[in-house]
Every structure is written in structure tokens, then in C-alpha cells.
Amino acid sequence: MTDVLSDLLHRARASNALVRQLIQSPPWSISYTDATPLTLVAALGGPASIRPDDTRGAPVLLTDGDIALITGRYTIADSPRTPPQMVIGQGKKYVAATSSPVPGLAPRTYGDGLPGATTMVRGVYELRSGAGARLLDLLPPLAVVPAGPRVGAALNLLTAEAARDEPGQDAVLGRLLDLVLVMALRSWCAGPHATPPAWWRALTDPAIGGALTLLHTEPAHRWTVGELATRTGMSRATFAARFTAHVGEPPLTYLTAWRMTLAADLLHDTDRTVASVARKVGYLDAFAFSVAFKRAYGVSPSVWRRRAVAAAAG
């Protein structure tokens, strides 16, 4: 059985994560101009200051082993006073003043590699809109996770693998980046500055966390409050009250919202008919599904699909 965070990460990721390493000598500054859904930047050595470009937040200093989780455009530099020298966006890497390309040092590794250089590793996630939005609810525009021994070992392995070019490398890097991301999310959500959504906090309750796992593992099952209560070893009334108190909404309301999230991603990412999507998320009646979907998204599944496809096409 898959736990809730693992299930959410699996469903949210639309493609293999992009992993790159940068080794740059001070003074340096890089602007990432693509509004990527989720970026992980780890400082491996040397000074680094990071600033989200979409907010008015102050720059944050990263020390060795720190991890930044970013949900928009940003600039990273050796110092907040260093003007942008390099721009990376739309699949291109160039020096801001000359538009000359950034030199490659090894597979997936860029920069000058001179003594005293700052070393960073960067991973970018492309996320599905519905499940991805739930994952991003865990984070502010910039979350910095301090260095720790557990994630340090994983970062060292990720960095070593990023410079290799062997069969299956993308799969290895994707799994290592997932490992680092999950550790960073755990640390951030347990920290003093986090305000995670109610469902995350509910995972610490064994019974309610178990019920959430059931709903995520089998979203198409015809769940009732009574069956969920039995599966978690509680009376129906006690379970319903406890679930609502911990999660902030009743069990079947949560289930409906999760089903609509999955349905929206299926409509966007597949050619399934509306009736097929309805069955996939637990509705035998396509009309009832359409009513629930319109209540959640404001338009019918067919209209939502057309708009989503048009938006993705630019």
C-alpha cells in the first residue's frame, strides 16, 4: 500500500525530473526565467544567495548542505549584490552580457570549475496541474531546509550521479532527486515556519493517516464512512468526527475532491472519454460525475479539457 505523500508525488510528476550541477567562481549570478512548478536547489560548497523573482521577499543565504525549494522564477548568486551574469530559460543557457553559451564541464554539469568555485545541484519537476497543486500546497514560494546528516548522504550520491553518463542515468537521477525532495519536505513541514495543509498534519494520526492512505490507494472504491471506520478500528461516529477534526472536512468530501483532482489530470493527460474517466475515479454514472466535476471546477469535463489543452498548446 502506497502512503499519501508517495502517492501524491507519483501522481504529480508529469515527466522525469531535470537534474543539473553548476560549478561557478565568484562573483556569479544566475537568473532562471522559466516559471517552473517546483525547483530544488542544494548548496554543496561555497556561498549562495537565493531570491524569488515573483515575490518581494528578501534574499536568503544558503550554506553548505542547505536545500531550497522554489515554486517560481528566481535568481541565485554568490551575493545578493552581484548583478545577473547568466540567464537560463527556455532550454537555453547564456552569459547575460554576451549571449555566449555556458561551458559544459561534464554530462549535466556547467560552469567554470575553477578553484574556490561554488557548487550547486538543481532539480526541476514538471508537475501535473491537479496533483501538483496539492503537492505545492505544502510550500511557500521559497522554503529553505537547513543541512542535515540524512539528506547530506543523498545529496552526495545525487551529485556524483549527475556527472555520470551511463545507461539508465535519468531513472537513477529521478529516484535520487525524489529521495532528496521527500526528505526536504519532511524537514520543512516539521519546522517552525511551515503551515502545511490539514491533510499533512493528519498523517501523524495513525488511524486518520491510515484512512487517507486507503482513499489515495483506492480512490475508485465505493467507500462509505462505515467501511472506513471499520478498516481503521473505530466506530462510525468517532471516525467521522475525528477525520473531520484532523483533515478539516468530512471523509467523503475529501474523497470527492481527490477524485476530481485525479479526473482533471486524466482529462488533460489522456484521451479517455468522459465516461471512462468517470469510471476510473469511482463514478458509474457519467452524469453524476459531470455534476460533481462542474461543482468543483465551474465547467463541465469536456469544456475543462478543451481549455486545458488549448492553454498547454500556448
Rank of each mutant, 00 (worst) to 15 (best):
P197R: 08
T63R: 09
T82A: 01
G132E: 13
L215N: 00
V87E: 11
R134I: 11
A190M: 11
S187P: 06
T232K: 05
A194C: 07
T217D: 14
G210R: 01
A133K: 01
Y32P: 01
A292S: 05
L177V: 01
D7S: 15
Q169P: 04
A154F: 08
P37F: 05
L266D: 14
R222D: 08
R279S: 14
A171E: 06
A275L: 11
D112N: 13
W200V: 15
S300H: 07
A288T: 08
P251M: 10
A17E: 06
A17I: 09
R134N: 15
D112I: 05
R259C: 03
T270M: 14
D285R: 00
S31K: 07
S100F: 02
V121Q: 00
Q21Y: 13
T256F: 08
A163Q: 04
A12P: 13
H268L: 09
P59H: 09
T253L: 11
Q24H: 09
P146D: 12
Q90C: 02
T55V: 06
G226Y: 04
P251E: 12
P140K: 09
W200Q: 07
H10I: 01
I76P: 06
P52A: 12
A184K: 06
S31A: 14
W200T: 08
L62C: 05
L18Y: 15
E126G: 06
Y283P: 12
L262Y: 02
L105G: 10
E161P: 00
L284V: 13
A245L: 04
V182S: 03
I50N: 03
D53N: 10
A237I: 07
A211E: 03
A288E: 12
R150Q: 05
P146G: 11
H216V: 04
W188S: 04
G209M: 04
G174H: 02
S31P: 06
A147T: 10
A313M: 15
G233F: 09
L44A: 01
D3G: 10
V4W: 07
V309M: 11
P47G: 00
L69G: 08
S290A: 13
P84L: 05
Y32E: 12
L181A: 10
L185D: 12
L179M: 14
W199Y: 09
S276G: 15
H221C: 01
H268D: 14
L255H: 14
